[in-house]
Design a protein around this nucleic acid. Sequence first.
DNA 1: GTCTATATCCAGATAGAC
DNA 2: GTCTATCTGGATATAGAC
Lengths: 200, 200
Amino acid sequence: MPRNKESNQKVKDERKEQILSVALMLFATKGLAATRITDISAKTDISQGLIYHYFSSKEEIFVSLIRSAMNKMNEAARNLERLPIPAKEKIILAATELLKGIVKNESTSQYYFLITQAALSDAIPLEAKEIIKSQNDVKYEIITRIFQEGQKDGVVKDHDAREMTTFFFTTINGLALNKAIYGKKFKMPDKNIFLNMFLK
Amino acid sequence: MPRNKESNQKVKDERKEQILSVALMLFATKGLAATRITDISAKTDISQGLIYHYFSSKEEIFVSLIRSAMNKMNEAARNLERLPIPAKEKIILAATELLKGIVKNESTSQYYFLITQAALSDAIPLEAKEIIKSQNDVKYEIITRIFQEGQKDGVVKDHDAREMTTFFFTTINGLALNKAIYGKKFKMPDKNIFLNMFLK
DNA sequence: GTCTATATCCAGATAGAC
DNA sequence: GTCTATCTGGATATAGAC
């Protein structure tokens, strides 16, 4: 009965998705250690025991979220680099999309906090830390290259490109955390202030 | 025996300081929930039981740290505002000192993470959240006023002052977290890139 | 696949001796 | 003031019935 197998798989995937989405919210608002399996089970209406049918531990859920967060971000950065537009436009587009993502998409700022948490805290599965260590540089390098290209074009300021990249991501990260803290009360400031750091 | 009382008080204060300084380090690297009283007791060489002689709970230690972090920051902001120098100099001084603090002083970035954690996480004593809520605005308002003064002087860019303040602190916060993540490998970027957001 | 019940463990906090 | 020993609660993870 291949038919049944397929739909079973689908149900299984949906359950996993459901667990992951609730876990993301909880990990982002409470942290890994303070989130109990019972919290996840309550918010998903999936019994405690059943969660262990889909994931072998709380940590595995966390690692799975970190992995997909990093994949999404790197994917977006690679797509940006490939676009057939000038460097300046890429920078403006990146800033616009990232800020928009923070404002509109709940899960974006949640992902940022998850990664910050994972990178910072010792109380995090080693596997999560290693994923971040090995993949975090990807987007840094891409943006640095774009800045350098912009400098050749004469439209990007002549500071060290790598240092500008540090400001680029730390500021985005800071904003995402601020949005996570203040929620709807957070008012996104004008992106042109931000772009002043990089564009002539 | 007032003499004895005094020196007893001194020992008591020292013990409290010792507990607080270890707790700060642990809360910043593991988070509140994942830090166990036994961790604090091990690193201080103070027995578990004795810690409860000085603080009534793990949460109280945390709240105490948050309180002194907010006090220090607001104190610094107030001192800055009082200085008899032009707004532009105040802004440069603030940026310089804040970035220097992040690089030099271990505990500075630890405090930043503590506050971010406390503001973000639901798994934090209400009292800590309330301290932050009621005191966080102080430094925002001070810096906003300084930006406005600088705009009158014609040396600060004509963006909305409050929005610049948001960028000011979110970027500082982002850098502090980055420093906390990368430790000694973190290279502080040139502060002039940062100042480009605000100064003409 | 799904639930309920439970074993096991561990952390926070307390009690009580010195 | 300081320690060791202990109580107690609660959370992870498992077992076993349906």
